[in-house]
Design a protein around this nucleic acid. Structure first.
Lengths: 108, 108
DNA sequence: TTTATTGTTCGCAAAATTACGAACAATATT
DNA sequence: AATATTGTTCGTAATTTTGCGAACAATAAA
């Protein structure tokens, strides 16, 4: 029937947005964004949730490409993935700027 | 135990992001953003999903404040909510721009 | 070698999301 | 009044998300 699917760009921005769709993950990104890098424990201290849950959120952010982590036994150092951060920044900027509402009248 | 919660701003951006966390909803926003307004039926035609599902996605976007709809019986006209669109645009811009990675070295 | 520290993974439960068809509501048309 | 059009809401099912404690793995320290 309906053949129309979503564009790769729509899928991508939705994927980034989904990863950012939880306050804990925004808090993690906020925290990581204001420093060069930090360990899991420091992130955990910032959040009101169990370490297992923090670990899960970090995993999702990593899978979305927004952060990266490397083992420095017995700790794990996390940081923003700069390349994808920049990609996401641009995607969201274009997404919001391309609204016709920004420069013309709109319903209302 | 842990008292620390999330800031209102973190909750807000997560809320917007969550609403944008599905390709169908991004497609809807893309479609609405490039025109002044349109009817439900036109949105439905753009998407590969049932009307009940489209209606649900529209409801979520409306509840997130990103769009608004008004009845023009028997049709329903939808459009971007300009005020919140601008708010979201700024929130995401600040969110991504405030990363230390943007102007200094980062882990890697 | 035993013990501590640091995180991840597992298993589970509760809740939310996604999707659909069917039923419904509200107006317009015949 | 009966019918058609346009969307929303309801009920349901399948899947995903969120969260936790317990168990585990890997290294470091005693």
């Amino acid at each position: 029937m309906k053949e129309k699917q979503y564009t790769a760009e729509q899928e991508l921005i939705a994927h980034f947005a989904k990863a950012m769709g939880h306050p804990a993950r925004i808090a993690i990104l906020d925290f990581l964004a204001k420093q060069d890098s930090c360990f899991f424990g420091e992130i955990h201290e910032e959040l009101p949730i169990a370490k297992a849950t923090v670990s899960q959120h970090l995993k999702e952010l990593k899978e979305a490409g927004l952060i990266q982590g490397e083992i420095e036994s017995p700790k794990v150092r996390y940081c923003i993935n700069r390349q994808n951060w920049e990609l996401a920044r641009k995607l969201f900027a274009v997404f919001f700027d391309d609204c016709k509402c920004n420069d013309t009248s709109c319903c209302e």
